[in-house]
């Protein structure tokens, strides 16, 4: 072990610039992968929050609904049944799901709880402030007009909101950002793999004398490979740690510092817990990225 560690130390100082460039490439690639995964987590969260898809939200009347359909105050059981009947009968409706005022209040509590002003607003609400709603999934999300116009005219319906229309552009943008981040990350992953293999080739060349002697005197293959494996593992872990730090900075300054404060009414934004999960994935990715080429190439170049 002592000799392995001294080999590792020598090799790291010999390959300083290669190691640094490998770590930089891997860090950026992991950071982009992490952002992609974070946006993915955000989409999941939004879908969970808004229902299966960003489609129609049909709000029934509450006591104070301004709509002409709500002259009688709260929607009656009969009106609610009629709305459900209409939804069931419309061929454009794939499925729908009811959210009670209590569930709506709970969702709002989570959403407004993200910022200080939100928490203050929340004090003025109670479950009674929220209507019963239907979250409707359409057969074709683009064709919401017919359903919207049919329901808008019904008694007891306070409002019909096309979530697609209001939030669609934001989430389309997020989806594109995610795809972009993952694509660039993919390219950088390829670059990182090539750099790992270059580093191994150069190190194997620089150490050919030692390696030749090690083979000759009967050092085990594992013993010969170990300094290479440790070097790659070290680079992977440093990159993973830097990427994790970058992601945490993003969470702190962008998500908590901006999105949760200013765009808190759209949705609930990802939390530190999601980021920690993403860091778990990128760390595993980093180790695989470094270990797979190392194990394959040391076999090839060291002829062990």
């Amino acid at each position: 072990m002592r000799s392995t560690l001294s080999e590792l130390r020598q090799s790291l100082s010999r390959n300083k610039s290669m190691s640094i460039s490998l770590i930089v490439t891997m860090t950026v690639s992991l950071l982009l992968a992490a952002l992609g995964l974070l946006i993915l987590a955000q989409s999941d969260r939004t879908e969970k929050y808004l229902g299966d898809r960003l489609q129609l939200q049909v709000n029934l009347c509450t006591k104070n609904s301004p709509s002409a359909n709500c002259i009688g105050g709260f929607a009656t059981k009969a009106q609610q049944a009629a709305v459900e009947e209409a939804l069931r009968g419309n061929s454009q409706v794939e499925s729908f799901e009811e959210r009670t005022p209590a569930e709506q209040y709970e969702a709002a509590r989570v959403k407004f709880g993200q910022s200080e002003t939100g928490r203050k607003q929340l004090e003025t609400f109670s479950p009674a402030s929220f209507p019963s709603s239907y979250f409707v999934t359409l057969v074709d999300p683009q064709k919401y007009d017919s359903v919207e116009s049919e329901l808008n005219g019904m008694d007891g319906v306070g409002s019909v909101i096309s979530l697609k229309e209001t939030l669609g552009p934001l989430f389309t943008a997020l989806d594109k950002l995610r795809d972009g981040a993952l694509a660039i990350s993919g390219l950088l992953v390829v670059a990182a793999i090539l750099q790992v293999s270059n580093t191994i080739r150069m190190t194997a060349y620089a150490r050919r004398r030692e390696i030749g002697i090690m083979r000759l005197v009967g050092a085990s293959s594992w013993h010969i490979q170990l300094p290479f494996v440790l070097e790659s593992l070290l680079a992977a872990l440093i990159s993973a740690a830097l990427a994790a730090a970058g992601l945490m900075a993003f969470m702190r300054f962008v998500v908590y510092g901006y999105l949760r404060q200013t765009l808190d009414t759209f949705t609930t934004w990802v939390a530190y817990g999601d980021a920690v999960q993403v860091i778990g994935y990128t760390t595993v990715l980093a180790v695989l990225l470094a270990m797979l080429p190392t194990l394959l190439l040391t076999r090839k170049y060291l002829d062990v």
């Binding site: 000799s3 050092a219 085990s220």
Partner: peptide, 10 residues
């Protein structure tokens, strides 16, 4: 070196 790399005790 020949002994170290085959893991002989110090």
């Amino acid at each position: 070196f020949a002994l170290e790399v085959i893991g002989r005790p110090r």
